[in-house]
């Protein structure tokens, strides 16, 4: 008797649960940003062009890394032939490290940032721009004594800029995607002391508390950041 009642209850509850799931999922899909847009016929070809340019950029960065490695190899060979070049090599190694042209490894702090789904639903017509937040996090990491910082693997160097085009972030001329990850290599305790300081990143933390952004901060015992892979442009500046 009890078994029959249970079967009846399940026969009603399971389809109702599935129905509720489907109703909510469908509603959320219809409300998602972008799905209301109609007649934007150029999105697909433009996105395809962008994809091709990104692929080309990946290939160019690999070529650049290759030609830089060849030049380094030749310099080492040259140093073996010439004492002055040998002396300069040590200075060059130090400058490359300072400039962000070498990999950087060690303990560090990883900050991840994204909009919450709830916030995105509220700002359907205007994708959120996180560039100022990312530059604030980078600033806090340097202030905390970081030796190297990268946003989604793009090393921050003297020529780096972070900006938004719509809701897309461009770092070092490369598109980076959400969730955004700022990784800082350096003394974990002092970087965390700055990042966790309530007076720092206060706007970001307020929006985290309002569940507008998803902000996570974690220390890592070991991490490696790749060297800067972009051009080193010095045309107008002359050293004295």
């Amino acid at each position: 008797m009890r078994s029959v009642a249970l079967q009846k209850g399940l026969a009603i509850a399971v389809p109702a649960l599935v129905f509720g799931f489907l109703v909510a999922a469908q509603w959320a899909t219809l409300a998602a940003p972008g799905s209301r847009d109609v007649g934007i016929r150029y999105i697909d070809p433009l996105t395809a062009s962008l994809g091709r340019l990104q692929d080309e950029q990946t290939s160019l960065k690999a070529q650049l890394a290759d030609v830089r490695a060849k030049l380094d190899q030749l310099q080492r060979a040259g140093a073996a032939q010439n004492g002055t070049v040998r002396d300069l090599s040590a200075q060059l190694d130090d400058l490359k490290r300072r400039a962000g042209l070498t990999d950087a490894s060690g303990e560090g702090v990883v900050v991840t940032l994204d909009a919450t789904r709830a916030a995105a639903d509220l700002t359907q017509d205007r994708l959120p721009c996180f560039a100022p937040d990312l530059t604030d996090i980078v600033n806090a990491a340097w202030r905390g004594g970081a030796r190297a910082v990268a946003i989604d693997g793009e090393r921050i160097v003297a020529s780096s800029s972070v900006y938004c085009v719509g809701g897309t972030i461009v770092v070092n001329g490369s598109i980076v995607s959400a969730p955004f990850t700022v990784t800082a290599v350096g003394p974990t305790s002092s970087i965390l002391a700055v990042v966790d300081d309530p007076s720092q990143l206060s706007d970001l933390k307020r929006r985290r508390d309002q569940q507008v952004v998803d902000l996570r901060i974690a220390s890592v015992p070991a991490v490696t950041l790749p060297a800067y892979g972009g051009p080193v442009v010095v045309r107008s500046a002359t050293p004295q």
Binding site: P33, G34, I40, Y42, I43, D44, L46, T47, L50, D114, A115, T116, R117, A118, A119, A120, L127, V165, G166, G167, T168, V170, I175, S177, A178, P179, Q211, D214
Partner: peptide, 20 residues
């Protein structure tokens, strides 16, 4: 609501895509 919102390029406007 807990899921983070990952943007995709398809959600950008043609103007933004052209700038990119």
């Amino acid at each position: 609501s807990r899921d983070v919102y990952s943007r995709s390029l398809e959600q950008e406007t043609p103007e933004s895509l052209t700038t990119l």
